[in-house]
Lab assay of single mutants.
Amino acid sequence: MTSCHIAEEHIQKVAIFGGTHGNELTGVFLVKHWLENGAEIQRTGLEVKPFITNPRAVKKCTRYIDCDLNRIFDLENLGKKMSEDLPYEVRRAQEINHLFGPKDSEDSYDIIFDLHNTTSNMGCTLILEDSRNNFLIQMFHYIKTSLAPLPCYVYLIEHPSLKYATTRSIAKYPVGIEVGPQPQGVLRADILDQMRKMIKHALDFIHHFNEGKEFPPCAIEVYKIIEKVDYPRDENGEIAAIIHPNLQDQDWKPLHPGDPMFLTLDGKTIPLGGDCTVYPVFVNEAAYYEKKEAFAKTTKLTLNAKSIRCCLH
């Protein structure tokens, strides 16, 4: 018999989150649709729960009410004593943790798909938090293969000092899905179709896995975050240069030392320094102006996964 890495157990509980950011409308629209008619997301033997994560922000069509829901799922915020004085999103995070967690427990949901849009030209993107997770690498390989020839990129946010504390991190297997470009507060049919297909293929993978299909060893190309880059700023902290036209919409493309990065209003080009080629992502993302992030630098690498098969009882 072929030796293989056996994944822990079959997958039982899956959640699909929309509206973690209330103005990213593809996930909101799909989740609302699936709450009314969820036939397309159901798979035999699998509990799939669509869920609106930040209903107040969705109602106002804004990213958040008090603070970013997708950055506060750490033990400090989840452990705060519940009171009306807490920011709305912290209270909501505790409610979500109660419903789908608790985080880092045996009772937490197996998989959470968190649906997002970006204003950046990132196409279909899967966000991975753990480079050693054979199950998710296999799932992402399946999704990428199923979507081809449509490109699907994998963004690895594993980093020693950049801690995200994402909404989906309460699950055993957290999956971020990011599709763009799409303006905030807008629905685009092409973007919706791409996100819908990503979810379909992900659920198909889980179904095949649960039925005992063995997935042979595989490898995927990923883009691992190195650092986030702020806009150049003046002495008052105001933005002093904008994304250069040569960099705009060039997510995932190589940016070499000396290539144009920013452009000042008086026409001066600010190039990339250093001696390493990087791959920019979230270029000129609207939501990241407040976070002082013009783009993120990534490096390209390959992740390998062992063969996996479900432990059938």
Rank of each mutant, 00 (worst) to 15 (best):
T2V: 07
T2R: 14
S3A: 12
S3Y: 07
H5T: 12
H5R: 15
H5V: 13
H5W: 10
E8D: 10
E8Q: 14
E9C: 07
E9N: 13
H10V: 10
H10L: 08
Q12R: 15
Q12K: 14
A15Q: 00
A15E: 00
I16C: 03
F17D: 00
G18F: 04
G18A: 14
T20H: 08
H21V: 09
H21I: 06
G22S: 14
E24I: 01
L25N: 06
T26C: 12
V28T: 12
L30K: 02
L30C: 05
V31G: 00
K32G: 10
L35K: 13
E36G: 07
A39R: 10
E40L: 02
T44C: 12
G45Q: 09
L46T: 07
L46G: 02
F51S: 03
I52N: 00
I52T: 06
N54T: 05
P55I: 09
R56P: 13
A57G: 11
K60T: 14
C61N: 15
T62D: 10
R63C: 12
R63T: 08
Y64W: 11
I65E: 15
I65S: 07
L69H: 06
N70R: 07
I72E: 07
L78F: 12
G79Y: 10
K81C: 09
K81Q: 14
K81H: 12
S83W: 07
S83T: 11
E84F: 15
E84V: 15
L86F: 13
R91L: 09
R92D: 07
A93L: 12
E95Q: 15
I96F: 06
I96L: 11
H98C: 11
L99E: 13
G101F: 05
P102V: 08
D104R: 09
E106H: 11
D107F: 15
D107E: 12
S108Y: 11
D110A: 04
D110F: 00
F113C: 03
H116F: 13
N121V: 03
N121D: 04
M122G: 04
M122C: 12
G123R: 06
L128D: 01
S131H: 09
S131C: 07
S131D: 13
N134A: 11
N134M: 13
L136Y: 01
L136D: 01
Q138M: 00
M139Y: 00
H141A: 06
Y142S: 03
K144Y: 04
T145Y: 12
T145V: 13
S146D: 01
S146K: 11
L147F: 05
L147W: 02
A148P: 03
A148S: 14
P149R: 03
Y153E: 13
H159E: 08
H159N: 10
H159A: 10
H159D: 13
H159M: 09
P160V: 07
K163P: 14
K163N: 10
Y164E: 12
A165W: 14
T166I: 11
T166S: 10
T166E: 13
T167C: 13
T167E: 06
R168D: 11
S169R: 14
I170L: 12
A171N: 03
A171I: 04
A171Y: 03
K172P: 09
P174R: 13
P174M: 10
V175I: 06
G176Q: 11
I177F: 10
E178N: 12
G180T: 01
Q182W: 01
Q182K: 03
P183L: 00
Q184S: 14
Q184G: 10
G185K: 05
L187E: 02
D190C: 09
I191G: 03
L192F: 08
R196T: 04
R196S: 06
I199R: 00
K200R: 11
K200F: 15
H201M: 07
H201I: 05
L203K: 01
L203Y: 01
H207D: 15
H207Y: 13
F209R: 01
F209Y: 15
E211C: 07
G212S: 04
K213M: 11
K213E: 06
E214I: 11
I220Q: 04
E221D: 09
E221I: 02
E221S: 04
K224E: 06
I225E: 11
I225K: 07
E227F: 01
K228N: 13
K228E: 11
V229C: 07
V229D: 00
Y231V: 02
Y231M: 06
E235A: 05
E235I: 15
E238N: 14
P245E: 05
P245N: 04
D249R: 03
Q250C: 07
Q250D: 05
D251K: 01
W252K: 03
K253D: 04
P254R: 04
H256C: 15
P257G: 04
P257E: 04
M261A: 14
M261C: 14
L263G: 02
D266G: 14
G267S: 06
K268D: 09
K268H: 12
I270Q: 06
P271M: 09
P271A: 12
C276Y: 13
V278W: 08
Y279Q: 01
P280H: 02
N284Y: 01
A286G: 14
A287N: 14
Y288G: 15
Y288L: 10
Y289N: 13
E290S: 08
K292M: 08
E293T: 15
K297Q: 05
K300L: 11
A305G: 10
A305W: 00
C310P: 07
L312E: 14
H313C: 13
